[in-house]
């Protein structure tokens, strides 16, 4: 499996550290049901069989956090974005050349 880092280019997955599903968002700690929301946020996963948006950290490269769209059946990677761009809503996902 190789990941195309938007900064460093195509690299083997041994350069990256995996952090899991990118879709959960941190609940409001002041919310009325914060206890339940946090338990779900920390412990429950969709664990999809198919495309998943997930976080990878380029530890042996540019130290960027990336949002990678990868198929959990085929390991095919279709999109890679900087996580900061996703957080800022800045750029649309760049499709990986196929």
């Amino acid at each position: 499996m190789r990941i195309v880092c938007p900064y460093c280019g195509e690299r083997g997955n041994e350069e990256f550290t995996y952090q899991g599903d990118a879709s959960p968002t941190r609940p409001d700690p002041a919310g009325a049901d914060a206890m339940q929301k946090f338990a779900e946020y920390v412990y429950l996963r969709d664990n999809p069989r198919g495309p998943q948006r997930e976080l990878w950290y380029h530890a042996a490269g540019c130290h960027s956090w990336l949002v990678v769209t990868r198929n959990t059946i085929s390991h095919e990677i279709t999109h890679v974005q900087f996580a900061r761009d996703v957080a800022n809503g800045a750029t649309p996902a760049t499709e990986v050349g196929r």
Partner: peptide, 11 residues
Amino acid sequence: YNTYAQRGNLP
């Protein structure tokens, strides 16, 4: 990493 592929990678 999450996978249902029943195969792994070389690293």
